[in-house]
Amino acid sequence: MPHAFEYALLRAVPRQERGESMNVGVLLYCADKKFLHCRTHVDENRLRALDPRIDMDLLRDSLRLWCGACDGSTTAPITETTLGQRFRWLTAPKSTLLQTSPAHTGFTEDPQRELDHLWETLVATVG
């Protein structure tokens, strides 16, 4: 039986004023399965083409905190909220190095498989 899910892309935005971004991850939330996870990948060479001075350490730390908010591995207070509240907080518009796309919806029987598919299709670099 398929379950409704929501997902959003994680985007690195090295320079706000240029409006350029690169997909660096995906968040997937499925309330029925109590599932909120993220999967990330940073292609440093592609990002440096957008901004040679990008702070990669800051980006990696931000991604680690966002994924920790999803799986509960961070000690941040956000982990005391529901999974739905966390997803809404993470996908709220921000003007920072790490932003999300608007949330999209779908149906799946296996949220982990869906997350892997979205990551492979929308984030992973080819070749």
Rank of each mutant, 00 (worst) to 15 (best):
Met1Pro: 11
Pro2Asp: 06
Ala4Met: 12
Ala4Phe: 08
Tyr7Pro: 13
Leu10Asp: 02
Val13His: 04
Val13Gln: 13
Gln16Glu: 05
Gln16Ser: 13
Gly19Ala: 00
Ser21Leu: 01
Ser21Tyr: 00
Met22Ser: 12
Asn23Tyr: 10
Gly25Arg: 03
Gly25Tyr: 09
Val26Ala: 03
Leu28Trp: 07
Tyr29Ala: 05
Asp32Lys: 03
Lys33Glu: 15
Lys33Phe: 10
Lys34Arg: 09
Phe35Thr: 00
Phe35Ile: 06
Leu36Gln: 04
Leu36Arg: 10
Leu36Met: 06
His37Pro: 03
Arg39Ala: 14
His41Cys: 05
Val42Ser: 04
Asp43Cys: 08
Leu47Arg: 11
Arg48Glu: 04
Ala49Val: 15
Leu50Ile: 02
Asp51Tyr: 03
Arg53Trp: 06
Arg53Phe: 13
Ile54Ala: 10
Asp55Ala: 07
Asp55Gln: 01
Met56His: 12
Asp57Glu: 13
Asp57Phe: 11
Asp61Gly: 00
Ser62Asn: 07
Trp66Leu: 12
Gly68Glu: 09
Ala69Tyr: 12
Cys70Leu: 06
Gly72Val: 14
Gly72His: 07
Thr75Trp: 09
Ala76Val: 13
Ile78Ser: 05
Gln85Ser: 15
Phe87Asn: 10
Phe87Pro: 09
Trp89Glu: 13
Leu90His: 09
Leu90Asp: 06
Lys94Met: 09
Lys94Asn: 05
Ser95Cys: 12
Ser101Pro: 00
Pro102Asn: 03
Phe107Gln: 11
Asp110Trp: 10
Pro111Lys: 00
Arg113Lys: 11
Asp116His: 06
Asp116Ala: 13
Glu120Thr: 08
Leu122Ser: 07
Val123Arg: 00
